[in-house]
């Protein structure tokens, strides 16, 4: 196929005025200055409203006496598709099974929420939270204490009043 070149016909330089286009553009700009319905969110003074099913960094629920609710059943490291959970179970001095080591590599995590879905004791949750910045990379491996300290809202993976989405 032969290549054809289309030549644009433009007014010669110096024979045209950009005044009309400039004024049109400025009028739009000035209109936005006075119109309040902008989509810009004044973050961080204003926080975005996260969806109830937003899946962010994890949080471990604790009992009233401060123990983690986790019983080290081993389901979350098994179900985790990214293999980001490390769990070593053990027994505390009262004979309760608990996680001696519970670590989540948040860099590896793909935030699918399956750990929360599979947890039989509702201990591990993904959170409605997104501000995860750290100064060092190793801070992104959350250990048990860190997971228990998190206090952000947890994700609602399903509507409690309609658990089967009926």
């Amino acid at each position: 196929m032969a290549i054809s070149v289309k030549v644009m016909k433009r007014p010669e330089a110096g024979r045209t005025s950009y005044m009309r286009a400039t004024l049109k553009g400025m009028s739009l700009t000035l209109k936005h200055m006075v119109r309040p319905d902008s989509v810009t969110l004044e973050y961080p003074e204003e926080q975005p409203a996260l969806h109830p099913r937003w899946r962010g960094t994890h949080r471990m629920e604790v009992h009233a006496d401060g123990r983690p609710k986790c019983v080290a059943c081993g389901l979350c490291p098994t179900v985790c598709p990214a293999n980001c959970i490390r769990l070593v179970g053990g027994e505390d001095d009262q004979g309760n099974r608990y996680p001696i080591v519970y670590e989540i590599d948040e860099f590896r995590c793909i935030f699918c929420g399956m750990c929360q879905e599979v947890c039989p004791v509702e201990a591990i949750h993904v959170g409605r939270h997104f501000e995860n910045a750290e100064y060092t990379r190793d801070r992104f491996v959350y250990d048990l204490d860190r997971l228990m300290e998190q206090d952000h809202a947890t994700t609602l993976l399903w509507d409690p009043s309609d658990p089967r989405s009926e």
């Binding site: 019983v71 080290a72 059943c73 389901l75 099974r97 039989p120 004791v121």
Partner: peptide, 8 residues
């Protein structure tokens, strides 16, 4: 207590 039972 299947989650904490060794036989599970």
């Amino acid at each position: 207590d299947c989650p904490i039972c060794d036989m599970s």
